[in-house]
Write a protein that binds this DNA or RNA. Structure first.
Lengths: 363, 363
DNA sequence: ATCACTTCCCAAAACGTTTTGGATCCAATT
DNA sequence: AATTGGATCCAAAACGTTTTGGGAAGTGAT
């Protein structure tokens, strides 16, 4: 592999000059610059970013730590789209991604700092951690530029991006109430995920807003998987069979609920309305199509990368919130108090327009 | 950040000794080794893998190049599972992944060699390229250890792993024929994907095996997306409405076909049988559940990583084939010649057992 | 002729490791 | 007493860049 030295020898100049010529410094004549470039071209010279990284203390690399998302059995559809946004933003700036996966076990063995400093990444984007993960505490006091997705930590060097989960959950429940529902269940994610806490808060706020008392028997917990959604749904229906609607903290769990409803002979949306959260591709592929709160996953990723780059440049970290919106599809319908009519009358405005009519809800 | 030099100074030894102590060489006394380790611990020393990489000419990093998989709109569910397997295998050996995404445009700008040599990866796993991509030719003559997924290239330094696509397609069509179908359509992927060619071959072989003439009007092409599957299905039904079954080269396209069938009022499986390829999670979430050829995606990834590591170690590249299997679910059923009975009689053995009864088909 | 500027170039240090090729000391063997 | 051999250590080179702090030559003004 040719190095800068080879070029220098061939061109009859010093390595300094080659370096400066190739990097566009002005203190090298146009003639020699051309000569050097030509030779570099002929040798098919490729700069060694490792050597460069060593002296510059900058690798143009960001770490992406994901927890439990990439493991057999749990393939969170969310991840790919976010990754896609991250890639796009980083690529423009010449950064590459190095992928760290961490399970709770490996978090015990290798500290967050060590993970990052060993590979000398310039910064890190973190996704999928639970609040109970050891890294959370470590990140609170790190000096490594860090951007978290969906975890609210803001320090001198770490920022985060998320949807407005409180508002999102509020919007979902609000919509159900407006449809006439009063007995609304919640299938939430694990209690130690930041988003779960926020979505619960939004759920409670919406109930409170309409003077509907909060009853904890109405909330069940899953772990964001489809199976857990199905189980939670069954539990809910067993314990509070009077519910007419349920809001699920993720589409995957909503799909599970949908399946469970099918097995139990409960018709959706005629007998029970379901709204999800995320708007993954799957939600338009199942029957009925899922009414949900759409998160702009690509934008979340893109923004996370932009924010990280700004922190690396020395700017102050901040919290970026990406707008969500309610997407009305087929899994929700009007609930009428009058039991004789319930389940038979549809609201044309809502039901007949299953398209992406949505309420933009920036925050 | 503390370096090996700091440790050397504090311990009163040379950097050589520190390096050798930390790396477990035998020519350092247990006493000094312990002292050095203790100091390293106290300083919270982290070895600089960049510096190490520079002198050792080895980065313990492999590149993962993916084409068009990670981009807005096309989130191939396949990718995550394969990635998961790759991660698992590499992690055990202390390798990290660096993610390269390449579109046809960037392939023009940066050669495959340059991409890899610039970041000094020890090897590369390549997924999602089409045969028409510029990198294909470059990979055929590269000396960079490379493993391709689903692309048959075998040289001194590059190997590949795939399912037996010919056999897989054969098995799918064979199953349909055994169910009594004779007029079987094919929804294939783009012609310049290696797997498409192989699956077409399997389709033809199966027909030939049963003496069913091949008719190219029975094959339509999509691009592995759901939408294209739906369109291809409509085209097929328009041009050869007599078909009673169709084999799709991917589950995503099969789902599209399923949707299109629904829109056109064609009942699946009563009026038409559909079998897919891949067995993505989605195929158990839609109604009816999809009969499909299951690919062991995690294993494919795992094997690809193992193979790559062996090539890096200097072993000879090879072609690893990962067994697939037919998974019978609900989208296929018996076809009876007698039109009076067609669509009304179900074969209990096939229909009533939608579980994962499958024919292991190693090759 | 001198001075002050430019313009163009370079030697050497630095980045943090690993590796090479001994050197030193001490004990055991001849 | 001299030699061998093992155990323990180290100075220096090497990896391929960038950066620092100049130096030499040329030009124009004084």
């Amino acid at each position: 592999m040719p190095t800068i030295k080879d070029i220098a020898r061939l061109a009859g100049v010093s390595v300094t000059t080659v370096s400066r010529a190739l990097n566009g410094y002005s203190d090298v004549s146009e003639a020699t610059r051309q000569k050097i470039k030509k030779i570099a071209e002929e040798l098919n010279y490729t700069p060694n970013s490792i050597a460069r990284g060593l002296v510059m203390k900058k690798t143009n690399t960001v770490g992406l730590v994901v927890s439990e998302i990439i493991k057999p059995g749990v393939y969170h559809p969310f991840f790919l789209e976010v990754l896609s946004g991250i890639k796009a933003a980083l690529h423009r700036s010449g950064y590459d991604i190095i992928l760290f996966t961490v399970d709770p076990e490996s978090q015990g063995k290798t500290s967050y700092e060590r993970l990052c400093k060993e590979r000398k990444v310039d910064g890190t984007i973190v996704q999928g951690l639970k609040l109970s993960d050891p890294y959370i505490e470590q990140i609170k006091s790190t000096d490594i530029p860090t951007v978290l997705i969906d975890i609210p930590i803001l320090t001198e060097r770490v920022g985060y991006v998320s949807s407005d989960n409180v508002k999102g959950a509020f919007d979902a429940v609000n919509y159900l109430v407006q449809l006439g529902h009063r007995k609304i269940g919640l299938i939430n994610g694990h209690k130690d995920a930041a988003v779960s806490i926020e979505r619960l808060e939004g759920y409670r706020k919406a109930l409170e807003h309409y003077g509907i008392p909060y009853d904890e028997r109405y909330v069940a917990y899953g772990d964001y998987t489809q199976q857990s959604g199905a189980e939670a749904f069954k539990k809910l229906l067993r314990e509070v069979p009077q519910i007419t609607a349920v809001f699920c903290a993720s589409d995957l769990m909503a799909v599970g609920a949908l399946k469970a409803a099918g097995e139990m002979g409960k018709k959706v949306p005629d007998e029970i309305s379901i709204v999800g959260f995320d708007d993954i591709e799957l939600s338009t592929l199942i029957t009925p199509n899922l009414t949900t709160i759409r998160q702009e996953k690509y934008r979340i990723g893109y923004k996370a990368a932009e924010l990280l780059l700004s922190i690396i440049r020395g700017e102050k970290p901040r919290h970026a919130v990406i707008p969500h919106r309610l997407v009305v599809r087929q899994s929700t319908r009007l609930y009428l108090q009058d039991t004789r009519r319930a389940g038979h009358c549809t609201d044309a405005a809502v039901q007949q327009n299953p398209g992406e009519r949505s309420n933009e809800s920036a925050s």
